[in-house]
Amino acid sequence: MYTPWTYNSAPTEIIIRNSTMNSDEQQQLKSWLYDIATDRDKNAFTALFSWFAPKIIRFGIQKLNTESAANELLQETMTNIWRKAHLFNGDKGEATTWVYSIMRNLSFDMLRKVRSNREDTLSEDIWPMAEAQLVQEDSFDDHLMSSNLLKNIDILPEPQKEVVKGLYFEEMSQEQLATKLAIPLGTVKSRLRLALIKLKQQIGESK
């Protein structure tokens, strides 16, 4: 979808001056949002973008730790504003509240993706290492491999053990396992992360 802007952040530090907004400034922001919603006004969007961009960048760097992630947050936020401007209701709140709500929700989604990717990477890194360490050089019997892996898994607390067994031996998805155990998906991910860290430590000590 077309959006009437591009953004390239400068490598220099962005300085934001904190100031209290007056009613005229809030009304101007509302006016720009209304113009975007009703007329798809590119000039209004550019003005709104210029006003919010440095603030979103600063927030993104603080919360997401990298300038590239902050730029992605800015682009996603402004794209959502362009698409959803018609949903803004100035009678129910200020423009800043509405925009920052979109920004925060997107930042939470980005943080969840980062954490999920870290867990997936940890899983992909540890499990092949566990198999290489535990399978005997001249024996590739599936039962023996499972027995050796289970022996190491026995070091885990029961909640972590049942998550690892469900995912790796029963080949269930995290969503299926969450349903089976009647726990939130986030709890499955947390238990898996802790279990894999402990397994990595155990494998390292046994080398």
Rank of each mutant, 00 (worst) to 15 (best):
Y2A: 07
P4D: 07
Y7I: 01
N8E: 11
S9V: 04
A10E: 14
P11L: 09
P11I: 02
P11W: 07
T12F: 08
I15S: 06
I16A: 06
R17F: 11
M21P: 03
M21R: 15
N22H: 10
E25C: 03
Q26A: 03
L29A: 03
K30N: 11
I36Y: 12
A37T: 01
A37G: 14
D41S: 12
A44P: 02
F45E: 02
F45K: 09
T46M: 03
T46Y: 09
T46P: 00
A47R: 13
A47H: 11
A47C: 07
L48N: 07
W51E: 11
I56T: 05
F59D: 07
G60R: 04
I61D: 10
I61L: 10
Q62M: 05
L64H: 02
L64A: 06
L64R: 08
N65L: 11
T66S: 15
T66A: 10
T66Q: 15
T66D: 09
E67P: 01
S68D: 14
A70D: 09
A70R: 07
E72W: 00
E72P: 00
L73H: 06
L73Y: 06
L74G: 03
L74T: 06
L74N: 05
M78D: 10
M78L: 15
T79N: 11
T79I: 04
I81T: 05
W82N: 09
R83V: 03
A85H: 09
F88M: 06
A95N: 03
T96S: 14
T97S: 15
W98H: 10
W98R: 05
Y100G: 00
I102W: 02
M103W: 00
D109T: 06
L111R: 11
K113C: 01
S116P: 00
S116H: 13
R118T: 05
D120W: 14
D120Y: 12
L122R: 15
L122C: 01
S123N: 08
S123F: 11
E124I: 00
D125H: 08
P128C: 10
M129D: 08
E131D: 08
L134E: 11
V135D: 11
V135P: 00
Q136F: 10
E137I: 09
D138H: 06
D142G: 05
M145F: 01
N148G: 02
L150G: 08
K151H: 15
K151D: 15
N152R: 11
N152L: 13
D154K: 14
I155H: 11
E158H: 08
V163M: 12
E171N: 15
Q174T: 07
Q176N: 14
A178E: 09
T179S: 12
L181D: 09
R191L: 14
R193H: 12
R193Y: 13
A195N: 07
L199N: 03
L199Q: 02
Q201C: 00
E205Q: 13
S206G: 02
